[in-house]
């Protein structure tokens, strides 16, 4: 099982890199869906050996939300707005991938220093590093991209990172709390979707950088 987990973590890091390098929104949405499914499987794999109904329910709910519901919402927003790709982001694809490598280095360094018990039990320090990498990638996407859609995508990736971190480091948070958190994240993405709908209708574009009337 340890090998499978490590393979999954590699896939997670590679998908982060892909998100940084690819500008085509439909591909990015597919990658985020892949991450969602991966995280659902991941939370089962980490708890392999003591699989309670709680683990299955949370894995199913999170996999469904992150792997199916969010991508559908985003895809809908893409077709509504007619946006195909991220044009002229603040940071281009190649510098973004280079930044991604730096982010990964930072994640490995921090991951090695955080004194966490949970990750060691699960057998791999890579978990913490990979989740931090995903978190930082999400943050980078929020900050360095101009389209409201890509920023929402970044928020989802950021949430994915936190989810992975939670699975790796804590494990047994009461299911009620975790469901509340998933619900919040879901509503957040939903609200961002509605917000994008309104922005698109009012401005006829989804460029967050052109929302710059308020200053000072």
């Amino acid at each position: 099982m340890k090998e499978a987990i490590e393979l999954g973590l590699m896939a997670l890091v590679l998908s982060d890199m892909a998100l940084l390098g690819i500008g085509l929104l439909s591909t990015c949405i597919r990658i985020v869906a892949f991450q969602g499914v991966l995280l659902g499987l991941f939370s089962v794999a980490v708890n392999w050996g003591f699989l309670t109904p709680r683990v299955w329910i949370l894995a199913a709910v999170s996999g469904l939300l992150k792997g199916v519901v969010y991508p559908l919402l985003l895809r809908r927003a893409v077709s509504d707005a007619g946006v195909q790709r991220e044009i002229e982001p603040y940071v281009g694809p190649i510098p973004s991938v280079l930044a991604g490598i730096a982010l990964f280095g930072a994640s490995v360094w921090i991951g090695g220093r955080l004194p966490l018990t949970g990750a060691a039990e699960a057998g791999s320090r890579l978990i913490v590093s990979a989740s931090l990498m995903t978190l930082l990638t999400g943050l980078f996407l929020v900050a360095a991209r101009k389209k409201a859609l890509t920023q929402t995508l970044g928020y989802i990736v950021f949430e994915n990172g936190i989810f992975a971190f939670g699975v790796a480091s804590v494990g047994e948070i009461p299911a009620l709390v975790e469901l509340g958190i998933l619900l919040d994240a879901f509503v957040a993405v939903f609200v961002m979707g509605i917000a994008m709908y309104h922005i698109n209708r009012e401005f006829d574009h989804l460029d967050a950088d052109r929302l710059n009337a308020l200053k000072g």
């Binding site: 978190l135 928020y155 936190i162 971190f165 957040a188 609200v191 917000a195 922005i199 401005f203 308020l214």
Partner: peptide, 26 residues
């Protein structure tokens, strides 16, 4: 237009910011 801009900034900054607090809670 201005209220939508303010709402989008509020939504993004606070969602991401508050997610940091969740990381801290973890």
């Amino acid at each position: 237009p201005e209220s939508l801009e303010a709402m989008w900034k509020y939504l993004m900054v606070c969602s991401v910011g508050v997610a940091f607090a969740f990381m801290g809670t973890l």
